[in-house]
């Protein structure tokens, strides 16, 4: 049975949390760009402390999931507002990945440490799960506009075997 569940991600992401043309050429550089953007839009209180928490998670295992995508994430006291930030780099960048290939799309999840809002966490879980679909990952790496990217992520298909 095909079950189409539409997610409403506007509380978690918008055009300001997406950059499809980042010039960063290293993991550190792109993460720094992303956390300082998170600070400037008011999602985190302290960019460098959030960056530290993201790196703490990086040490625990690969966040490069293959298909050119990485999903670094930090559950951190510096997070004020749960946010999904997506940067796509012009150049492939080195990352610790499951397929040993570099990444171009970085989906950074900023999560509040104490959160009563299960709905946000459910949406994040659902997006993470949906990245198991390689065709979907490919669409994300090729998408041409921010709006389309949000649409792809909001379209969630479950329970269908190919």
């Amino acid at each position: 049975m095909m079950q189409k569940e539409k997610l409403d991600l506007k509380e978690l992401m918008n055009e300001h949390t997406i950059n499809l043309h980042s010039r960063a050429d290293s993991k550190m550089e792109v993460l720094k760009e992303m956390v300082s953007k998170l600070e400037s839009i008011g999602s985190v209180s302290d960019a460098s402390s959030f960056l530290k928490d993201v790196y703490a998670r990086e040490k625990e295992g690969f966040t490069g999931i293959g298909s050119s995508i990485a999903i670094p994430h930090g559950k951190s006291e510096s997070v004020i507002k749960n946010t999904i930030m997506i940067y796509r780099t012009n150049q492939p960048i080195e990352w610790e990945t499951l397929d040993d290939l570099p990444v171009r799309v970085i989906i950074l999840l900023a999560v509040k440490i104490e959160d009563q809002n299960n709905l946000h966490l459910k949406m994040l879980a659902s997006i993470a799960g949906s990245l198991a679909d390689e065709a979907r990952c490919e669409r994300i790496t090729k998408v041409e506009s921010k709006q389309k990217l949000i649409q792809i992520l909001e379209q969630n298909e479950e329970g269908e075997d190919q």
Partner: peptide
């Protein structure tokens, strides 16, 4: 997974997808 935010759900979907493709019944708790 450690953070309980992303890998848990990705691992689940991967197992479910591969199991179904191989014709098995599957249910994964997260």
């Amino acid at each position: 997974c450690t953070a309980g935010i992303a890998h848990t759900y990705l691992a689940k979907e991967k197992i479910v997808e591969a199991s179904k493709k191989a014709g098995h019944q599957v249910k994964i708790e997260t």
